[in-house]
Simulated assay, not measured.
Amino acid sequence: MYLFPGKETIPFHLVWIGLSIVYGFIAWHPAGMAAVLIGVAATTGTILVHHAAAGEIGWEETTEVPLMMLVFGVMVWHVHVRQRVVARLAQLAEHERRQADTQQILVRLVSHELRTPITVARGYAELIRDGASGPGVAEDAAIVLDELDKLSRITYRLVTLMLMTAAAARQPADIDAELKRTLHRWVPTADRIWKVRSDVGVVGIVPERLEAALDCLLENAEKFTADGDRIEIVGTRRADGWTIEVLDSGAGMTPERAAALTAATGPLPSSTGTGLGLAIARAVVESWGGRVEVRGEPGVGSCVTLWFPPESPEVRSAEPDVLPARQLFKRSTDDGSMTNT
């Protein structure tokens, strides 16, 4: 800058650019940064003032020094803001990690600390019922057993709901076979007309989670139906993704109740349950980018629809490691009906 008067613009800006680059890579102490800034500004400013006094450049050229100091100050402010944001994000990430660890510990504690006492209490209640000397004691023991069964189911669902938030890799699976296998397990549980039909094919899922969601919906359907009613699972491939519907011809519900269940973001208790079943199904579906819709009509039945977006090309192109549905279930009828005989 000093040796080439009138051509100092390029080295002048290179000096300030270099200063900015070095500051971007090194976390300077404020005092050191101020000292370097003043030193660079004084050096370059002195040279520009000397050339201006000699008439080799105009005095307006000297205004670049305070302007560059201002630009550098704005950059310093921006870097500090970015560093605070990065530090905050790191704190949030650490907080989420600790929450996940705490949640896993809680799941293990709930699984052990609740299920074990329930099992022990159930064993003693069965002993009291079996050794009862009068009908009153046996009836009371039967009520205790029923309540313990309810508590056991609630505990299982709570643990399942907490596990739904943990990350899990999706893998290709034959949805048609999964739906038939799930319904097949429920056939002996109640005197219903069980049906299943599906044309979804292979998509990416976590089979255990989909099974847990379907189990919750089928349990609800069984609860609100009577002997001879129909419970059906329908899987459909659509242009905007794929769906699984759980339909029944039971008691149904009002449109207002169906709308409330569709819009709910968590468990919505009712007079017959805790609402955890639908919450588990919603957690599974939403973890894959889908949604849950509930429809119903009093005295006609209800329908819960699980909508899933299209699977990724990577998952779609992978080979399924499952058997065809017709090889898994020989007892299925041609129309997909199953009985519990």
Rank of each mutant, 00 (worst) to 15 (best):
T182S: 14
K195S: 14
N220Q: 12
T236I: 12
A221F: 03
L217K: 06
E178K: 13
W186V: 06
H184Y: 12
R192G: 03
I244E: 04
E245V: 06
E219N: 15
E232V: 05
V196D: 03
V187A: 15
T189C: 04
D229M: 06
D215P: 01
E211W: 00
A260G: 01
E219P: 00
D248L: 03
N220T: 11
L218N: 04
W242N: 01
V202S: 09
T243Y: 02
S198L: 04
W194I: 06
I231F: 01
R238H: 09
A258Y: 05
D176A: 09
A239D: 15
T243V: 08
I244R: 03
R197H: 12
I175Q: 08
P207L: 08
E211K: 13
T236Y: 00
A212D: 14
D199R: 10
I175R: 06
T236A: 12
R257H: 09
T189E: 15
R209T: 05
N220H: 13
R257Q: 14
V203Y: 01
R238G: 09
T243L: 09
E245F: 00
M253A: 09
V202L: 05
T254P: 06
A251K: 10
L214K: 04
K180A: 15
V234G: 01
T182W: 01
D240M: 01
R185I: 11
T189L: 15
A177T: 14
L210K: 00
A239R: 11
V234D: 07
D215R: 11
E208C: 00
G204Y: 10
V187W: 02
R181N: 09
G252F: 01
T236R: 15
T225K: 03
V206A: 13
V203R: 14
R237N: 14
K223H: 13
G235L: 03
D174H: 12
E211P: 00
E219Q: 14
A190M: 12
G250E: 05
G228Y: 07
